[in-house]
């Protein structure tokens, strides 16, 4: 971990970065914001850890808990809502056995999350499965995709 953090620190100095760019780099490298990483930067830069957490909890891009290996993002934009995205989420959580209020399965295989709008409203409802955009999603198609991932 130390090595990666050093690299992030170097980019921070080179590009006159700030807390947000540091957190974005941490998230990119680890998939979430580990406490150790925040403490490490707090010490190195002499910025209170609370400042990092203040920013990290403000923006939805940052996650404080480890996330699943496969990430399914359901768009909750207006067009997707009108075309039934709420039902997709309900069914996904049921299918993957994710308890209410949680996002990730206990075996860390899947994370189901919502996004405000990815701007592909013309092909709503839209779902991202590991960053690939799938348009005109249906419950059937979604279940098939999950089965495919599970069997891999």
């Amino acid at each position: 971990m130390e090595e990666t953090l050093e690299k992030i620190l170097k980019t921070y100095h080179e590009n006159s970065g700030n807390i947000i760019t540091i957190l974005q780099d941490i998230e990119k490298n680890f998939g979430y914001i580990p406490e150790e990483a925040v403490n490490w930067f707090a010490k190195k830069l002499d910025i209170p850890a609370s400042h990092f957490y203040g920013v990290a909890t403000f923006y939805s891009q940052f996650h404080l808990k480890p996330r699943g290996k496969n990430i399914i993002t359901v768009c909750r934009g207006t067009a997707c809502h009108v075309k039934g995205s709420e039902r997709l989420i309900n069914r996904l959580c049921l299918e993957l056995d994710i308890p209410e209020g949680e996002e990730t399965t206990s075996d860390l295989k899947f994370t189901v999350e919502k996004v405000n709008c990815i701007g592909a409203c013309g092909i709503a409802p839209v779902t991202l499965i590991n960053n690939t955009v799938h348009g005109r999603m249906t419950i059937d198609k979604l279940i098939k995709e999950i089965k495919k991932i599970k069997s891999e």
């Binding site: 909750r76 934009g77 207006t78 067009a79 997707c80 809502h81 405000n116 709008c117 701007g119 592909a120 409203c121 013309g122």
Partner: peptide, 12 residues
């Protein structure tokens, strides 16, 4: 920062 859900003009 086109945040309005249901808008994708700026993205395009």
């Amino acid at each position: 920062d086109e945040g309005d859900p249901g808008a994708f003009m700026d993205r395009s």
